[in-house]
Each structure stands twice: as structure tokens, then as C-alpha cells.
């Protein structure tokens, strides 16, 4: 089953086209990387798929259902670019809050799940600390935990590794591959082309258009490039000529 499917998806903000007839298909269990510079439409695409924004034209389906759709939200996790945490609550309180909003109403189950997620992000020992007292990297981990505390089948991660140190970045990609193995579909946006090689499949975005998709090997060989960066530039040049 296609977890995500868009056809001719277009989003205009005034005169600016943030998305331009974008058609994309993502399979269940895939780890898909959305690549492109700032302003290429990555966040807009994710926000439409997460039900936060309405498309101007075209359609988008998630789990086979047209978005926005309130019913599918409980199966989706969304980690925004901002930390988006309550600074004056503890780590545990933040997780508990979002877990409940996502429908984990049973207290015992919820608490078990929160503890479980805390172990995944390796912050079990700081669960009673106020978020404002944590370091930037820790906050980023809590933010990730809030996005997956309800055990979503589809996870949107908007630039999850921006501004974090190399060590933490590595552990983030480790979390992602663990989630992939568990069957979670991940859509990760990034403008760091090197780390994105770890995704199963990549999509290159430029000015709201999807200019290429494929595995990193495929993209490099089609573009006759030795690195992904070079491949992106070649595709971008081709797009401008077309």
C-alpha cells in the first residue's frame, strides 16, 4: 500500500508557489528523504501531509485517505523544526501531555509507553527535569520523543538534525533506522545531502517541484555524479534548461 500519495499537489501563498504540481508516492516502511535548499517546499509538503495546511489544488492521500483528515492523525507523528515543547513542564509531563492528546487515555499503558520512549532517547534519568533546564541536544531528543510517543505508523521529521552535534546526529540516525525496522514509515526533510544517504529513497525538491526521486545510487548514476551534492546540482541545472 502507498502510505503517501500526491497528485499535482500545488500550494500558493499569495503569488508564490510553495509547491508546484508535485506528485509523489511513498511505500509503507520506507525511509524517505526530502532534500532541497531552504524555501524549496519541504516544510509546506510535510505540513499538508500532516493535515496542518490545505493544498490550493491537486490532491494528497495519506493511508489512502484524503488529507486533511482528523481520523488519521493518531497514526501520524510530527516533529517540527522548532523544539515545540513546554519549557515550564518536565520532560515526563510534556510526553504525557502529547501522548494523551494522541489518544493514549489508559493511564497505565500511557505511563509504560512514556517510560519506553524515554529509554529510546536515553533520557530516563532526566525525566523529572524541567525542559528549560536541558541542553539543546536533549531538548531535540525530547521533541523527537513527543512525536513518537503514541507509536505512529508514519513519522514526519522536519529537519530533525539541524543544529545538533555530530555525535547526537549519529544517534538520531540510529533511532531512525530502528524505527524503520519496526515498520514505521519515515519522511525526513533535510538540506544536509550527505547524511541523507542513509535514507532508502530520496526526493529532490527545487522551488516547489520534485525534480528527481530514487535511491542515492540511482540518483548519482542518472546524474553521472560522484556525490549527491553534484547530483542535485546537475538535476537542478537540467530543470532550469527544461
Amino acid at each position: 500500500m502507498k502510505i503517501v500519495e500526491t497528485k499535482g499537489l500545488t500550494k500558493k501563498f499569495g503569488k508564490i508557489k510553495a509547491l508546484d504540481h508535485l506528485s509523489l508516492q511513498i511505500e509503507e516502511g520506507e525511509n524517505f528523504g526530502l532534500l532541497g535548499p531552504n524555501g524549496s517546499g519541504k516544510t509546506t509538503l510535510i505540513r499538508i501531509l500532516a493535515g496542518l495546511l490545505k493544498a490550493s489544488s491537486g490532491e494528497a492521500r495519506v493511508f489512502g485517505k484524503k488529507v486533511p483528515n482528523l481520523m488519521i492523525l493518531k497514526d501520524i507523528g510530527y516533529m517540527t523544526q522548532l523544539e515545540a515543547l513546554y519549557q515550564d513542564l518536565t520532560v515526563w509531563e510534556n510526553l504525557n501531555f502529547f501522548a494523551t492528546l494522541y489518544g493514549l487515555y489508559d493511564r497505565k499503558k500511557r505511563e509504560l509507553r512514556v517510560e519506553e520512549v524515554l529509554k529510546v532517547i536515553d533520557l530516563a534519568d532526566r525525566k523529572n527535569s524541567l525542559v528549560e533546564t536541558l541542553s539543546g541536544g536533549m531538548k531535540q531528543r525530547v521533541s523527537l520523543a513527543c512525536a513518537l510517543v503514541h507509536g505512529p505508523r508514519l513519522l514526519f521529521l522536519d529537519e530533525p538534525t539541524v543544529g545538533i552535534d555530530p555525535e547526537l546526529r549519529l544517534s538520531f540516525w540510529n533511532y531512525f533506522s530502528i524505527l524503520s525496522k519496526q515498520g514505521v514509515t519515515l519522511i525526513i526533510s533535510s538540506h544536509n545531502l550527505e547524511e541523507a544517504q542513509k535514507c532508502h529513497r530520496l526526493g529532490f525538491l527545487k522551488e516547489g517541484k520534485l525534480i528527481a526521486t530514487g535511491t542515492s545510487q540511482e540518483l548519482k548514476s542518472v546524474a553521472k555524479a560522484s556525490t549527491l551534492e553534484e547530483a542535485y546540482l546537475n538535476f537542478a541545472r537540467e530543470d532550469e534548461l527544461a
Partner: peptide
């Protein structure tokens, strides 16, 4: 802070 955006995603 973006928490409203996150709430809206629930």
C-alpha cells in the same frame, strides 16, 4: 514556540 502547531498535528 511551535507547540500550537504540534497540538494541531494531534
Amino acid at each position: 514556540s511551535g507547540t500550537l502547531e504540534r497540538i494541531f498535528a494531534t
